[in-house]
Amino acid sequence: MFRSLNYLNGGLFDDFRRLEREMEQLFGAGPWPSGIRSVARGTYPPINIGSTPEQVDVYLFAAGLNTESLDISIQKNLLTIDGQRRLITEEGASYFRRERFDDAFHRVVTLPDDVDPEKVEASYVDGVLRITIQRRETTKPRQIEIK
C-alpha cells in the first residue's frame, strides 16, 4: 500500500540507523531496539512525497492539528507549510513523558518543475495532511499514434 514510499533505499538513512543502534548498545537501552525514530528525532512534521504522471502528493504526518492554524502556500514549485501544534498541559498532573511536539513548525518542499500552482487541494484525515498538486497537461506522457 504505502510500501513504495516507505521503503525507499537511502544510504544516509541506513547510516543513521546504524549509528542509533550502536548508541543504544553502548548505553544499554534494553534488549529491544527502539525502532525507527524518524518521528521523534526528525524535523516535525515528517513528510512523504509521491508522484504520478498526473499529480504530486505531499503527505504531512501531523496528528491532532488544528487545521485553522495551517498556512499552506505555493510559489511556482515551492510549497511552504506553516502551522503550529500547541498542547494543553494538564494542571496538577505529574508528567512522566513529554515527547509529543508542542511548537510552531515551518516546512518548505521543492516539487517537480511541472506542477501547476493553480491546481492545489488539501485534506486532513486521521492526522495526515495531504496536499495534491496537479501537473501541467503538456508534461503528461502522451500516446503517439502511428499512422
Binding site: M1, S4, L5, N6, N48, S51, T52, F61
Partner: peptide
C-alpha cells in the same frame, strides 16, 4: 494514494 505512485521523498518509512 493514487495508483502507480512513485516515492520522491520519505521521512516515514
Amino acid at each position: 494514494m493514487p495508483d502507480g505512485m512513485e516515492a520522491l521523498y520519505a521521512d516515514v518509512r
